[in-house]
């Protein structure tokens, strides 16, 4: 079973976000594996441990991605590919197109990814790739079972569970609860530096920056307004109720 995992490095979600010149500042920020991708990595390693095969991560992003990739290698991934050519950085369309080109050169039975990246939170890339590769996709998996060339996936649907089956190859995206990612062990960390990490450019994968140019443009980046302190109404409950409805209409303007 050869498994590809799409891996993105993101902000540590506990970091404070600072805007500088209309962009999110990366100054002094900690970067981590996108938490949902970490579930995907863990699942891939678990499947490999059970069924054999090889796990490869595929990433598109700047050089700093290496630390996230090395962590995945330390957890037990076998090899990694990083397209670190800024000429092919763009939007979700760009990412899907570039990653698809990389994937086409691999042999695989299964592709795992996170259902969303916690930074941009678009949740589009795996779906777009599935479409470009013309293979099925099942999103927000909380349980994956493989039986021969069939796969059964329990997926989270707004708190309920839906059970789907699909033939391989298929793309599956992970939801929280899929597993408990392991810590990379010390021997794993020491071995990670000897595992192959291929860095590819636009040329290497045979795409021209033009054909993958972003189809969207960010007009403005801004922080959500600060939360104001709440107000506690007082008096008779029935009066409070009336006042509340009044305020929701006149002040909050939500009804």
């Amino acid at each position: 079973m050869n498994i590809l995992v799409l891996l993105k490095q993101t902000f540590d979600t506990e970091e404070k976000i600072v805007l500088e010149n209309g962009k999110v500042s990366e100054e002094g920020v900690e970067f981590v594996i996108n938490p949902y991708d970490e579930y995907a990595v863990e699942e891939a390693i678990k499947i490999k441990e059970e069924l054999g095969g090889e796990v490869t991560t595929i990433s598109l992003g700047p050089d700093r991605f290496e630390s996230a990739i090395r962590t995945a290698l330390a957890m037990g991934v076998d090899k990694a590919i990083l397209v670190d050519d800024p000429d092919v950085f763009g939007d979700e369309y760009t990412a899907a197109k570039v990653l698809t080109e990389v994937i086409k050169d691999q042999t695989y039975d299964l592709i795992l990814a996170g259902y969303v990246a916690v930074d941009d939170a678009s949740g589009q890339v795996p779906q777009r790739i599935a479409d470009m590769l013309n293979i099925p996709i099942i999103s927000t998996a909380v349980k994956i079972e493989i039986d021969g060339s069939n796969i059964t996936v329990h997926r989270d649907v707004e708190g309920d569970t839906e059970i789907l089956e699909a033939p391989l190859p298929v793309i599956i995206t992970s939801q929280q609860g899929l597993n408990d990612p392991r810590y990379p062990s010390l021997p794993g960390i020491m071995k990670a530096k000897k595992k192959p990490l291929d860095r590819l450019s636009a040329d290497d994968i045979g795409v021209s920056p033009d054909e993958v140019k972003a189809k969207t443009e960010v007009i403005e980046t801004f922080l959500p307004p600060k939360k104001e302190a709440g107000r506690i109404l007082s008096g008779e409950i029935s009066d409070q109720g009336r006042e509340l409805v009044q305020l929701l209409r006149s002040e909050a303007k939500v009804i």
Binding site: S67, Y183, I189, A192
Partner: peptide
């Protein structure tokens, strides 16, 4: 080193 950083994070 990268390994030392990774160990610290882990």
């Amino acid at each position: 080193t990268k390994e030392q950083k990774m160990i610290k994070d882990m």
